Simulated assay, not measured.
Amino acid sequence: MTGLLVVTAVPAEAEAVRAGLPDADMVVVPVGVGPAVAGAATARLLALAEAAGRPYQGVVSAGVAGGFAGAVAVGGTVLGTRSVAADLGAESPAGFIPVDELGMPPELLGGGVAIAADPDLLATLQSNLPEATVGAVLTVSTVTGTARSTEELRRRHPDAVAEAMEGYGVGVAAAHAGLPFVELRTVSNPIGPRDRDAWRMREALAALTTAAAALA
């Protein structure tokens, strides 16, 4: 049996995680950007490990995220209570309709529009990262870039503290494999009007290295 599978979007995030991991029994893999490629790649990694007789014990979606102002500061660490497919649904004259309210059978939703973190894994990370902000992490295919869309996300998901692009896809893969899952993020920028110059990627990656040590 192998330890945790830690998946990131890009190599820089994977390198930051590896720098903080004291346990060589963990596998860290950059799988790509967005929920579709992240979910597909994670599912393949889990299937290959199981077929080889070395299944993983759990899955972590890790990396950099945007944080909601007032919930978490730039450079802060976030632990996801659940990973939410925030833009999966339909538009209507009355506003956005989440996919689980469109009348589709639950079995077609891959575990629902939110994948809950494993309570034991989350509790362990909370114990090891007492300063981390805990709340929902939104998975989006289009990064939020206006004040209006930011407020709309806040209204629909009042427990959300951050947004990223892979967590829900990774969580679905873990759920289908019957494995514990959690999302770990560090914040590079506030969610809102897009200002690339305000991003603090170096600080977020350094925080990710520090936070990764908690995975032990």
Rank of each mutant, 00 (worst) to 15 (best):
V84Q: 08
G111N: 01
A14N: 10
H157A: 07
T146A: 00
L153I: 00
N128I: 11
L125D: 13
R202C: 05
E183G: 12
V182Y: 07
G95N: 02
G171N: 04
T210M: 12
D120R: 05
G135H: 11
P193Y: 13
R200F: 01
G76K: 08
A9E: 00
P158M: 05
V64I: 15
V182S: 14
T8A: 02
V27G: 07
A211P: 04
A86P: 01
E15T: 10
A164S: 14
A85K: 11
A212T: 03
G3S: 04
T2M: 10
V134Y: 07
V27W: 06
V6A: 01
D100M: 06
V182G: 13
P98L: 13
T139R: 06
T2E: 13
R148A: 10
D100V: 00
P193C: 11
A65R: 02
P158T: 01
M26G: 00
L125Q: 09
A19L: 11
A71I: 05
V6M: 05
S149M: 09
G169V: 08
S92L: 08
A49Q: 08
A24F: 04
L4Y: 01
A132H: 08
H176A: 15
G95E: 08
G171F: 00
Y56G: 12
L102N: 10
T2K: 09
V17I: 03
L88P: 08
A14I: 06
A164G: 11
A40E: 12
L138F: 02
V113R: 13
G70A: 10
A94I: 00
V137W: 12
L208Y: 03
A47C: 11
A69V: 06
P22H: 09
T210P: 12
E203M: 13
G20K: 01
L184C: 15
D87K: 03
A16H: 02
L46R: 05
T144R: 00
A36R: 07
A198W: 05
V31S: 06
D195T: 13
G32Y: 09
A19I: 12
A214H: 03
T133W: 07
A212K: 02
A211S: 02
G178V: 02
A213D: 12
V17A: 09
R44E: 14
I115L: 10
P98H: 13
S83I: 09
P180A: 02
A198D: 12
G70S: 14
T186S: 14
I191M: 09
G145R: 09
L205N: 10
T150P: 04
